[in-house]
Amino acid sequence: MSEQIKTRRLRLKSWEQGHFAPFAEMHADEEVMADLGGALDLAASHSKFERYREALRQHGISRWAVEDLEGRFIGYAGVMPRLSPGHPLGAHYEVGWRLVRRAWGHGYATESARAALDDANNRLGITGIISYTGAENVRSQSVMRKLGLVRRSSLDFVQQAPGGGTWHGLVWSVDNPKCGG
């Protein structure tokens, strides 16, 4: 298992305990979390953090902590095993990202997601990766297009949103596992 992936401007790192405080702060930000029903409390952030760490230990792949070259946490990106048969799409691998607001608009989501996709394909041979977001999340849809993902409306789904209500997932897929990287 790789401990770190370096890009031109970023480091994708295995989760460390020191990442938890900024991770929880990011999830407490209403604007950052607007697409998923709102901010998470500390307990929900802790559960998500531990789920990512456990996926990396068990499967060798997960979301990575993303830092700038000065070592500041700016979010996460990575390919997550979604192995629950109860998910509307069944078992699958999903590429996703979330960044703190100060990191928006700099191309970091695309850069880190591309590196994570390359790692999943080159190190583990994982293909058939998908991504999904809400209809209102045009920023993530833009990243998906930049990554070369293809819109798959026949796979769209509706599920319970973390903050209550329902969430409509728009699905995109990786046709070229290298994603132009």
Rank of each mutant, 00 (worst) to 15 (best):
residue 51 R to A: 15
residue 107 G to W: 04
residue 11 R to W: 04
residue 124 L to K: 07
residue 48 K to T: 14
residue 72 R to W: 00
residue 145 R to G: 08
residue 167 W to N: 01
residue 141 Q to F: 02
residue 102 R to V: 00
residue 5 I to L: 15
residue 17 Q to R: 15
residue 67 E to V: 08
residue 168 H to I: 09
residue 108 Y to I: 04
residue 114 R to Y: 12
residue 73 F to V: 11
residue 147 L to I: 08
residue 173 S to W: 04
residue 154 S to D: 13
residue 166 T to Y: 15
residue 164 G to Q: 14
residue 92 H to W: 12
residue 117 L to Q: 10
residue 130 I to A: 03
residue 78 G to P: 07
residue 22 P to E: 06
residue 94 E to D: 15
residue 151 R to D: 03
residue 45 S to L: 09
residue 115 A to H: 06
residue 49 F to P: 00
residue 34 A to S: 14
residue 35 D to H: 13
residue 141 Q to L: 06
residue 108 Y to F: 14
residue 63 R to A: 05
residue 71 G to V: 12
residue 91 A to L: 09
residue 148 G to V: 07
residue 95 V to M: 05
residue 35 D to F: 13
residue 37 G to K: 09
residue 163 G to H: 13
residue 80 M to H: 05
residue 143 V to K: 07
residue 63 R to Y: 05
residue 147 L to V: 08
residue 6 K to Q: 14
residue 164 G to H: 11
residue 103 A to W: 02
residue 80 M to Q: 13
residue 173 S to V: 06
residue 65 A to M: 05
residue 91 A to K: 15
residue 6 K to C: 06
residue 106 H to E: 10
residue 180 G to R: 09
residue 71 G to A: 09
residue 42 L to R: 13
residue 130 I to T: 08
residue 17 Q to P: 11
residue 4 Q to I: 05
residue 3 E to T: 13
residue 10 L to A: 01
residue 125 G to F: 15
residue 7 T to C: 05
residue 117 L to D: 02
residue 12 L to A: 01
residue 112 S to T: 08
residue 60 G to D: 09
residue 133 T to L: 01
residue 121 N to G: 10
residue 159 Q to S: 02
residue 20 F to P: 04
residue 175 D to N: 11
residue 54 E to T: 15
residue 46 H to Q: 15
residue 45 S to I: 13
residue 87 H to Y: 12
residue 32 V to M: 08
residue 76 Y to F: 15
residue 63 R to F: 14
residue 81 P to H: 11
residue 119 D to Y: 12
residue 25 E to K: 13
residue 64 W to I: 03
residue 59 H to K: 15
residue 113 A to T: 08
residue 178 K to G: 11
residue 80 M to D: 03
residue 113 A to P: 04
residue 104 W to M: 06
residue 93 Y to I: 11
residue 112 S to F: 05
residue 129 I to G: 03
residue 14 S to L: 11
residue 99 L to F: 13
residue 92 H to K: 02
residue 72 R to A: 11
residue 74 I to A: 02
residue 145 R to A: 08
residue 78 G to E: 04
residue 118 D to E: 13
residue 33 M to C: 13
residue 125 G to E: 05
residue 62 S to W: 05
residue 8 R to G: 12
residue 40 L to D: 02
residue 8 R to Y: 10
residue 35 D to W: 11
residue 82 R to C: 11
residue 44 A to Q: 14
residue 88 P to K: 10
residue 137 N to F: 00
residue 10 L to I: 03
residue 119 D to A: 09
residue 57 R to L: 12
residue 171 V to L: 00
residue 41 D to N: 15
residue 39 A to D: 08
residue 74 I to D: 06
residue 74 I to W: 01
residue 8 R to Q: 15
